[in-house]
Every structure is written in structure tokens, then in C-alpha cells.
Design a protein around this nucleic acid. Structure first.
Lengths: 348, 348
DNA sequence: ACTATCTTGACAACCGATTGCCATTTACTG
DNA sequence: CAGTAAATGGCAATCGGTTGTCAAGATAGT
């Protein structure tokens, strides 16, 4: 570790200027074989306590850190976990990434973060590459089809987020369960004509949200039409807003907050007021949903926790011995957060 | 690469079910030595064209991909670059990360993204660890002191972002250069009493912004006081807003948009209007600055490009042969973006 | 045709750690 | 005290490549 104190950088690691110490350096210093050093550090009980302590002391003195490449090569474990997201700049993934990062670091793993650019091909080739350079992979909002994803999962430990595929452990952020709540909320304001602004065609999340919403609408005898698909970016909000206005609905439930925020901006440009002229409900409660104008009514979930759970599930696959009951599906609760973007139906 | 077409997953890679092919498999198939295969793939001109083509064909047929661990071990190059940011969830870094990610991928490198949690110790230990597992490192907004950072830079190729240290190549986002613009903008609205809401005490960016601002203020005979320090989070905005109100200034130039947005929220809570009662200028033009309420006047720069430039500068260090004139300092232009959070000084 | 030069490819050491196997030492039992 | 079992630690192979060395073969020059 680099010395952090002012004025005496590196004071705690005399060897830092040379190349990093290896087990051979320690072996030489202690007069034992390299393999003994390896054992003393990995299976302490296999080595005499006195030798072990000498070795550990030497390791500290030489500031030894195992070379992860070499360890990976001989053990076959890389100590790295890949995390794939479709778009790094989508705030939804920030908290997820932070959750995985924290949990992985706590477990001594390195996170390899990859932005797959909403492309199934990039995702596929990344998975192939990761097969040799990571012990496992967490795939958020996969754009791959079920077969490809299942095939990839057969080759390396995998946990998906917001994607259900047979045999692949998954963390599901249960936004659909909040759809009835959201619809009731709109109905309570008098809305009877609602649109669902859908996300990417290949997004399973979007499909599930639509299914839940249309089922709830049918039960309640409310008309819900589907608009889209739209790319999950604020820029898509303009087209989505225009489509919503044209469709004549008085309220929209939107695939995600990014599009919803874009709609808010577009509606304002067009001189329409939210929620007086149109109510908007988003999904995900991303960064910004609370301070946009008006603040967005949306569906919130513990995203960072979802990231942590995904890591835990993956680690359970990697170290089956540690017990912990291999759940292969974890559902994160979701609830409606009401803010300022929803209100009474306009009186025509 | 995984097959992406529906219905025929894996069709293009017959060997995918076994373990990945090695150069030994290729050597066996072609009846040559493993080293020949290695050369045929690395220095093609060192090998007979016919043999080479046989080997390359076999490589394709077996779907060969070099094992990066093994390559790293024997060559000493890992093909990975570490990217350190103080806080992944700070939107400022999204674009930076995306820029580094894209440029690194284009150059065939893997990005190791680490959140150092605003801690100099985490940063130091991460750098130490990365010394063996990465070829170089990009450090954004380092929280380390100059000596430690210089010491770390002496041990491995490094490029800093928004941090000037002797001998360490840096990409500087030149926000300070827009400070006079921002101040003139406020003065043009009649403000004469301005506060600088500062960021973390260890942030060199914050210090530089303050220096530029106070110099500009002195030239113009305007009073500028300094408040803070505050953590770069929206939550800090509340304390910052209260401090600003208490200090009696009519306008604030804020270390970054995160704090500025937090101030906007707090001022609204306290019943103060922006910009009627108080003008706010942020820095960075992050995601959200354009749709908060009111939209934030702030200082914009090409952040994603900064990430790409940082990678280019690092790669120039890693492959000195490729020429390209080793710049060791690159300054990104910045300009003031005026939105709705600034206005005329309140008439008392 | 013969030698000088260059090209080509095989062999083996090496990177740093892990691990199976075996020899030595130590401890314990009868 | 002999005998056996357990504890301990060293040797060497191995992971998948890279690279230096060198010999054999091809080409060219005279």
C-alpha cells in the first residue's frame, strides 16, 4: 500500500522500488521451498506453526502480494467477475454497479465492468471473452435471446438481473408488481385512458411491465394502449411525448424514468403542463427523478441491494461449499413513489 | 462468439462445449511445435507463409482465443487498464467512464473500473494492487497527496484527470477558465456579493476553481467569499444552501452540479426562489443539470472526450513506438451554459 | 558445385503460483 | 523400544503462453 502520510511516501514499503516480491523471495529469505511458502499462505494448517510464522513475517516484511495472473493460471480461478450493462450512462445502472462493486470488493473479487452498448453482438462476444478471464458474470438487462443466453450460462457461472431464463439464477426487480398500484393511483385521479410507453423491443423488463399493466387494466375495465418501442434515453422522450399526445390519453406509464424525464421536457416545450394536462408515471426512480420538474411519480426499488444480491448469488455458485442455500431467483420489492407528475384528469 | 441468431445458438462454434482451445491444440492439429504457433500468431513474418496460413486456419477452426492470464504471465503485459474514480454514482464520471471504456475497447484493452469511495487509502491500496494486474492506470480526481501520487506514477504508467502533479501526464478539464465568464454573467445581472461553495478539501479541482474565481473577483472589485468544504453529493446541498443564505450573498458559484442541485432543492424547501432570491451557478453540466428545477446554469466540457484523450495519452506511454508525440498535458475547453438558475440580483 | 547467408521451426527455459506425490521427521501406541 | 501413524516440507509437474538459442533446410552468390 502506498504511504499516504505527507512527506514520507512509501515509507512503509522498503521494497517498493524493486519489482514486487514473489513467493521465491520469501522462500529464499526463510530457507524453505517455494511450495512451502505457498502452503503456509494458503493452507496454514498444513505447515508447522513456527515455519508458518516465519514465512508470514517475511511476507509482511517484503510487502508480498500474490500475483493474480499467476494464481489465475495455475488455479484456473481469476478472481474477477464480469458485470455487463447495456449502457453505462443510464443512471439506473449506477446503483446496481455500485452494489456489485462493493460486494465484490468485500469478497476479494475484481469487477470487470463492460458497457455492451445495447448490442446483442457486443454482449455475446464479451461473454465469450470473459469465459477465460472471469470466474463468473452478472448480466443486467440482457439483450440476448433466451437460447444464446442459456448457452452462455452453460459455459460459465452467471446471474442475470431483470431477465428470466430457465436454469439461470436471476435477480428480478419486481416493477410489474407495482403496476396495479400505479394504475389505481391514476384511476383514483379519475384517469380512464392510459398509455404504456414501452422500452426496447428486446427488453424483457418492458414486456413484463406491459403484461402486468394490461392485466391490471383489464381487471379494472380501463383502456390501456401501448406506444413505442422507444430507446431508453431521454432523447426518446420527445417522440414518446408526441405519440402520447396524439393518442389522446390523459396519463402515461412509462417504461423508465429516462424516457419519462424526456417526455416531461418535451411536453413543457409543447406548452402542455404536467400533471394538469397529462400525468406521467416512470419506472426505476433513478437519479434525477426527485428533482426534475415536476418531480416524477415513479416506481422505486432497492437497486444497489439488487446488485449485492446478484453478487451473493454468483459467489454461492462459485463456492458451493459455503452453503447458504443456493437460491436461484431473488425478487426485489418495488413500490410506487408519488411525486408531482401525477394529478387529476383534465376536465374537458 | 456466441451465435446470436434465434434457433441456432452456438452454431458457429463447434468446439464451444469443450474447454477453450490452446496453442497446443493448434500445434497438434498442424503437426508443429507450440512455439511455432505462438510466432505465427504474433510475428507472422517469422514463419513460412504456408505454415502460417495452416495455423491461422486451424486457429479459426478451433475458435482459438489466447488466454489472457497466460499471456500476461509470460509477457508481463496484462492488457488491462485501471480506471479509478472517487464515486461511481456521481454522474460526472459516467461520461468519463464511457469515454475510457470505448477507447480502451477499441484498442483491445480491458477496463478495470474501481470506485475508491473518496478515500485516499482505498485509492493507494488499489493502485498498489493494480501495479501487478494492469498495464497502466487512469486516476480521476485523485484524493491522494502529491507525493504519494508521484510515487505511484513512478511505478506504473499513469494519466491523471483533473489533477496536476509534476511528471504525471494529465487531462485537465479547464473549468477554471470559465470562472471569469461565470462571474461576468453574474455581474451583468447586478450581483456584487458572491459565494464560492467549495468541494472536498483534498480536491485539487475545487482549489483551482476557487483560485480562478477569486482572482477574477479581485480584478473586477467584487466580493467573493468561500463556503465549505462540502462533500460532492446532493445531500450536502442542504448545508451549503443554508450557509449561503446565512452569509447574505445573492449568488453562488458551486463546486459542482451535484451540490448545486441539492441547494436548489433546499432553497425551495425554505421557500426561497431561484433565481429571484438567489442565483446559482454549477460546474460540470452533469446529467440532470438541464432538467432540474430551474435548469441549472453551469460550466460544460466534453467529458467523454476527456476520457478518450486520457486513454490515448496512456496508450502512448504504453506503446512509445507508435509515435504520436507524447503530450503530457491536455486541456479540455470549458464554457458557460446559461439556463434558468441565474437572474437579476434581488432588489432589496 | 560449394560455401556463405538467411530463413524457418523445434527445443527448452521461464513467468509465479498451485498441487500431487513422496521422503523425512515427529509423535504416539502397544 | 520397536512399530505405525501423522505431521511436515521438498521436488517436480503443470497452467498457457513467450522468447532466446540453435540446428536444419532453403536460397543465393561466386
Amino acid at each position: 500500500m502506498f504511504a499516504v502520510q505527507r512527506g514520507t511516501p512509501m515509507a512503509t514499503q522498503p521494497m517498493a522500488t524493486g519489482r514486487p516480491a514473489t513467493i521465491h523471495d520469501i522462500a529464499a529469505l526463510c530457507g524453505v521451498a517455494a511450495s512451502t511458502v505457498s502452503r503456509a499462505l494458503a493452507n496454514p494448517e498444513r505447515v508447522n506453526i513456527r515455519t508458518r510464522e516465519r514465512i508470514q513475517a517475511a511476507a509482511v516484511e517484503l510487502n508480498y502480494t500474490p500475483n493474480s495472473q499467476a494464481k489465475a493460471l495455475s488455479s484456473g480461478k481469476t478472481g474477477a467477475v464480469g458485470v455487463l450493462v447495456p449502457d453505462i450512462t443510464n443512471p439506473f445502472y449506477f446503483d446496481l454497479i455500485r452494489g456489485t462493486q462493493l460486494q465484490l470488493k468485500a469478497a476479494g473479487y475484481t469487477q470487470l465492468l463492460v458497457d455492451t452498448e445495447e448490442s446483442d453482438e457486443v454482449e455475446a462476444s464479451t461473454l465469450e471473452q470473459l469465459r477465460k478471464s472471469a470466474d463468473g458474470v452478472i448480466v443486467a438487462a440482457s439483450r440476448l435471446n433466451d437460447d444464446s443466453l442459456a448457452a452462455a450460462a452453460a459455459l460459465m457461472p452467471m446471474v442475470t438481473v431483470n431477465r428470466d431464463v430457465d436454469g439461470v439464477p436471476a435477480v428480478i426487480i419486481d416493477t410489474p408488481s407495482a403496476m396495479p398500484q400505479a394504475l389505481d393511483h391514476l384511476i383514483s385521479w379519475g384517469h380512464t385512458s392510459v398509455a404504456y410507453v414501452s422500452g426496447p423491443a428486446v427488453s424483457q423488463s418492458s414486456a413484463r411491465r406491459w403484461d402486468a399493466l394490461s392485466a391490471a387494466a383489464e381487471e379494472r375495465g380501463v383502456e390501456v394502449r401501448r406506444l413505442g418501442p422507444f430507446a431508453p434515453k431521454t432523447q426518446s422522450g420527445a417522440a414518446a411525448a408526441d405519440a402520447a399526445v396524439h393518442s389522446g390519453v390523459t396519463a402515461c406509464i412509462v417504461f423508465n424514468d429516462l424516457i419519462a424525464i424526456g417526455m416531461l421536457q418535451r411536453l413543457r416545450e409543447r406548452g402542455l403542463r404536467v400533471p394538469e394536462d397529462m400525468s406521467i408515471v416512470g419506472c426505476d426512480d433513478i437519479f434525477g427523478a426527485d428533482f426534475c420538474n415536476p418531480p416524477l411519480t415513479t416506481m422505486s426499488s432497492p437497486i444497489e441491494q439488487a446488485g449485492r444480491v446478484a453478487v451473493s448469488m454468483l459467489l454461492a455458485q462459485l463456492n458451493p461449499l459455503a452453503g447458504g442455500g443456493n437460491r436461484n431467483r431473488s425478487v426485489m420489492p418495488t413500490h410506487l413513489t408519488v411525486r408531482g407528475s401525477t394529478g387529476p384528469v383534465p376536465s374537458t
